[in-house]
């Protein structure tokens, strides 16, 4: 059975001298009783869906069903290649990838919920962008996804991954934490550094509320996928430079869960607070549902 805490995870990885991704694969094989190749194969097809969703809206102008979002991935992609960016082509391409999946999702295209549909842009954008930069093989990208899944399992066990329960910190925050840990392992960081990255990402997004305009997974969701992607990537660099987190991963996850519980229902996916009740949001809602 998959361990229950980050502390136990680090002990096991140390004892067996394996990374988080390897531990996660071994546990999956045991839990679902299927051979290793099958588990890897399924993750490979998951990666392929991610590759498509993170590319499609960069090449095609995609509009959501409601018309609230769309076309931004295309814009950012063009800008990324313009040579005029502040944060460079790498970061801008990552941002374009992130919002591409969100736009595809809102336009009823195929995505991977990771961990949720609302946060589906972060993990693909982070893994694929980092992989491109690091010249990673497809196998290494798949390994990254297992690292991310392992961290996600720990968060699911000790807190929640649902915006309705824990706010957006639990969705986009968890997605970014999972992604950052994955990149750290892809860069050759230790399991401890991977969990450090996850902890730092969550600390920086702690308290983020879930407040989708008109109840749709579009505004502010799509741009939060960009923010999560940037945070995951910069935090990986931060950790690889040797920076640590004073507060350990398990305690940060505990704090996130607590904060989620303390959030009023208005700020947990009900669209009764935050951005969702601004005058413009209410006007948009009226237009969409022709009330």
């Amino acid at each position: 059975m998959f361990v229950s805490t980050g502390k136990e995870l680090l002990e096991i990885c140390k004892e067996k001298n394996i990374p988080i991704w390897e531990y996660t694969i071994r546990e999956e094989i045991e839990a679902v009783e299927v051979p290793r190749e099958k588990v890897i194969e399924r993750m490979k097809s998951t990666l392929h869906v991610m590759m498509n969703s993170s590319t499609y809206a960069q090449d095609n102008i995609v509009k959501s069903v409601s018309g609230l979002i769309g076309g931004d991935a295309y814009k950012i992609r063009k800008y990324a290649e313009s040579g005029k960016t502040l944060t460079g082509e790498f970061m801008n391409k990552a941002m374009a990838r992130a919002i591409s999946s969100s736009e595809v999702n809102a336009a009823m295209g195929r995505i991977v919920a990771c961990p949720t549909a609302g946060s589906c842009g972060i993990l693909p954008a982070v893994i694929i962008s980092a992989g491109e930069k690091l010249n990673s093989s497809e196998d290494q990208l798949i390994q990254g996804l297992f690292t991310a899944a392992g961290v996600g399992i720990l968060i699911a066990k000790n807190a929640t991954l649902a915006g309705a329960e824990g706010g957006c910190q639990a969705e986009c925050g968890s997605a970014a934490a999972m992604a950052s840990a994955a990149v750290v392992e892809m860069m050759g960081g230790t399991p401890e550094q991977a969990l450090t990255a996850a902890a730092i990402v969550i600390k920086n997004i702690l308290g983020l509320v879930c407040d989708p305009v008109a109840g749709l997974v579009e505004v502010p969701c799509a741009k939060r996928n960009i923010a999560g992607t940037v945070s995951a990537l910069t935090t990986a660099d931060l950790v690889m430079s040797g920076v640590y987190s004073k507060i350990p991963f398990d305690e940060v996850v505990w704090a996130m869960y607590k904060v989620g519980r303390q959030m009023p229902a208005e700020l947990r996916e009900t669209s009764q607070g935050g951005i969702a009740i601004t005058p413009t949001a209410l006007k948009l809602k009226k237009e969409i549902f022709k009330e």
Binding site: V49, V104, L145, A148
Partner: peptide
């Protein structure tokens, strides 16, 4: 955690 593969 990483899934389902679905239409949004």
């Amino acid at each position: 955690i990483i899934g389902p593969i679905m239409i949004g």
